[in-house]
Design a protein around this nucleic acid. Structure first.
Lengths: 339, 339
DNA sequence: CTGTTAGCGCGTTCAA
DNA sequence: TTGAACGCGCTAACAG
């Protein structure tokens, strides 16, 4: 709450001089600076960030907006992404402004944050078909980076980072085929998400690679949550009892599938196998049981931030569109809860 | 990027009139307002949030600062808390400014966010012994709420929300005793955390309640991460083979303990039992295997936001210090990863 | 009903 | 080496 003005009064110099002394300009008398800096620390001066932002027309802040809360309790993608983005941003001298969409006002948060000049750049995640957020940002003239390409039948003319989930799901499918399974169900992500088409294509790739027929009735759509995975698994196994393996479109649904299998009195990995796919940027990754994937998603957040800050600084970027190679996480676990 | 000025020029009215028309003041000619609002939407006007903040001396934003990243990959407390806080804040018309501490500059983020007037209030979580953040905020004259009391030997003279973890760990311990165990290890949280003393006291309470002796050598300190839980479990079981049950000071360490038990060729829940405690505010909670607790921590975030916003509005608060009753989560699971 | 004036706190001309 | 003046974009008090 002490302002430049206060220090100016205290030292007898003008606000301008105080400002320059503290900013480290070299056209200030050494003694003057000394005195000013001393009283500044004495009075506990902290520059007013908001005033600075207004004056400098930059905020040193990046924005991220999380979608409204249908899936908030079960799907850990955004919570991990936010952590990764937050740490990476801090490391590079940026703060993170987080806003959640409200169901009442879909684009309100974007207008407030982006249109309101609250941030220097924005991160978008979990692209949807005909995503209105991307359309909005294209017009808004503010740097942005997207986690996830548009669907294959749309144009992706913006900077993005994505994982080759088509290949990832193909690998998951081939893994199960390699175990000897021939009737393999697929719990796909929701249809409105951009990556769903890639993942479905990967499932089909995997089958075709082994000359297995693609049966559309083996494909169901889940809600990305454990509950959805559990429910769809129940449906699949009831309808098609000869299914012995399931590919889940994401991690949470894989966990849900395992729960259902256990609940049905079957053994995961014995009676029915499950693989889940998640966004894995690169490198080795441990596969402890009982855990969901955290680090890889955080790493994507880190990539996003680095890319975005380059854009903000108008630095040269090699590629603005990056497709990370997938790393498969195969998981099969069994769980029991004591009474 | 269109400003009030632009609309003023376009319509011929003064900036003030435009401002008032858009703000909905009633001392504006209906026609004038009509015209102004129309050109405003036409030009895609969005008020500049930063300028507003400076002018109004409030930001409609709350701050949260997450600690530096030793535990970022394994401990899901902060990621969930942030989600809970973010959604609750959005619901109440606030944005969330997230900043991470950097190891270089412990208090830097606080000074920037709090001292820089970037937020109307702050949330602190995971209180430490002699927490410098609390000391800082006491002086800073900015509303704040703390998740977690100070340690029992310190004074807690600030608004907080906490879970009665002493009772929670006592229940966990009694649960294991009820199963017939008499040699029960405790993997405590790090000593520097404020709640550790409560949790240790709970462990002792549980033992005493059943007239079992408290053996200090059965207590080890973990790092809140799965790795720590795993490592400490290995130590405990190697050193004291007659231990048949373990209470873990948090959820992640409980998972780590299970991993170790499995790795040692023992069966979780048969050879060695495990219970983990987590922050559970209230109400029923499902106990699916293979999952960590998300919702309860988010609910704490929600409580924190509501309390903080009351403080910001200087509304009357019944209690500014709230101790939520614990709900025990007992978990025992086994996991296997396919080769 | 509308416009002029003033100032939130800061940084950056420009002149002295 | 220093200070006065200006403006970032907005809102509020005060006149008219």
């Amino acid at each position: 709450m002490t302002k430049l003005k206060d220090i100016a009064q205290e030292t007898g110099f003008s606000i301008t001089t105080v400002s320059r002394a503290l900013a480290g300009y070299d056209d200030v008398n050494a003694e003057t600076r000394q005195q000013i800096m001393q009283t500044a620390t004495q009075m506990g001066y902290q520059p007013n960030g908001v005033a600075r932002q207004l004056r400098n027309q930059k905020t040193d802040t990046i924005g991220i907006i999380i979608p409204s809360d249908e899936t908030r309790f079960s799907d850990d993608f955004f919570s991990e992404l936010v952590m990764g983005v937050g740490y990476a941003a801090a490391h590079l001298g940026y703060d993170l402004l987080l806003s959640a969409q409200t169901s009442a006002d879909e684009m309100g948060a974007y207008q407030r944050i982006v249109g309101g000049n609250r941030v220097d750049g924005v991160i978008i995640a979990r692209t949807r078909r005909h995503d209105p957020r991307i359309a909005y940002l294209k017009k808004a003239n503010l740097p942005y980076v997207v986690a996830g390409r548009s669907a294959p039948d749309e144009i992706t003319d913006y900077p993005y980072i994505d994982v080759d989930s088509q290949r990832g799901i193909a690998l998951a499918t081939e893994y199960l085929i390699g175990l000897g399974h021939t009737h393999i169900g697929f719990i796909a992500p929701p249809q409105e998400l951009a990556y769903t088409a890639y993942r479905l294509a990967g499932y089909i790739d995997g089958l075709h690679h082994a000359n297995l027929p693609y049966r559309p009735d083996y494909v169901v759509y889940g809600d990305l949550r454990r509950e959805g995975g559990a429910q769809m698994t129940r449906m699949l196994l009831r309808e098609y009892p000869h299914i012995t393996a399931i590919v889940a479109g994401n991690d949470a649904m894989a966990l849900g599938a395992m729960t259902t299998i256990t609940d049905m009195g079957l053994r995961v990995g014995v009676d029915v196998s499950v693989t889940g796919f998640d966004n894995i940027p690169s490198g080795e990754h441990a596969h402890p049981p009982l855990t969901t994937v955290r680090q890889p998603i955080q790493e994507i957040g880190q990539h996003l931030v680095e890319r975005l800050i380059s854009l903000i600084h108008r630095e040269q970027l090699g590629e603005t569109q990056t497709l990370l190679s997938p790393m498969l996480i195969v998981r099969e676990s069994c769980g029991k809860v004591p009474s």
